[in-house]
């Protein structure tokens, strides 16, 4: 088995006297996905933040590409894609300008047609020169998906990637994540309930009161389309 790209070893996190994560152990290999299921306040977002190196664990270690997440070199950070509840987009820049900025930041040597192609793909081509502040939450989430993927990361951390998306948008997000998995990207994403997509590559584990329960196989797909029931709930 390939070495895991995303790992947590005995990860504890407390805010004051309140424990949020209690000894989380996980690992995600290239081309595999981990769906972390949990209720509101279960610690899902905190876990992803620690995995990304955005916060310091109280104890234990979060690792990306075999290195502690807090000590990633720029070359390793270039291999990470992150999607959170915040879009990380500049409201006063247009969709195209935002993507141009992140492309420059990640030194993506993409063809000039790359950004229009991405915008077309997520259904935002007509809004390429609109400022993000005028976007609906769902449109912003579609653009944030492109921002997280434009540099073809090797590891993806996604906090409820289907939130705020309509059924078409949720299907699109599922397709993009599936494509990332197929090219060898390791994906850890959070959700409120079971997701039925990329079942052959993903494992679901439930986060309950800060403990990540043992893995079980994701439910088999029952029809041709992925079921993303929670997307409708999130809207």
């Amino acid at each position: 088995m390939d070495a895991p790209l995303i790992e947590a070893r005995g990860l504890f996190k407390s805010f004051g006297a309140t424990p949020v994560l209690r000894g989380v152990e996980l690992e995600v290999a290239p081309g595999r996905g981990l769906i972390i299921i949990g209720r509101n306040g279960a610690g899902k977002s905190t876990l992803l933040r620690l995995l990304a190196g955005l916060g310091a664990p109280t104890a234990g270690d979060a690792r990306l590409f075999g290195v502690s997440s807090r000590k990633l070199e720029p070359s390793a950070r270039r291999r990470l894609g992150m999607l959170t509840h915040q879009s990380y987009l500049y409201p006063n820049l247009t969709a195209r300008e935002n993507l141009e900025f992140f492309r420059a930041l990640y030194r993506v040597a993409a063809a000039p047609t790359e950004i229009p192609r991405w915008l077309e793909r997520v259904g935002l081509a007509r809004f390429a020169d609109e400022r993000v502040r005028a976007f609906s939450r769902g449109m912003e989430q579609r653009l944030a998906l492109v921002r997280a993927l434009i540099h073809r990361p090797d590891a993806l951390l996604m906090d409820e990637p289907f939130a705020a998306l309509d059924p078409d948008g949720a299907e699109l997000a599922a397709t993009l994540i599936r494509e990332a998995l197929e090219r060898g990207c390791a994906v850890a994403l959070t959700a409120h309930r079971e997701l039925d997509f990329a079942a052959d590559r993903c494992v679901s584990r439930e986060l309950v009161r800060g403990r990540l329960l043992d893995s079980g196989a994701a439910p088999a797909r029952t029809d041709a389309e992925p079921r993303l029931a929670h997307a409708a709930d999130a809207r």
């Binding site: 990304a52 270039r78 915040q86 990380y88 930041l105 030194r107």
Partner: peptide, 15 residues
Amino acid sequence: RDNGCLRALYLSPLD
């Protein structure tokens, strides 16, 4: 800090 953009910069490969 709007929209968490500072975190995006922190996570990026930018020195």
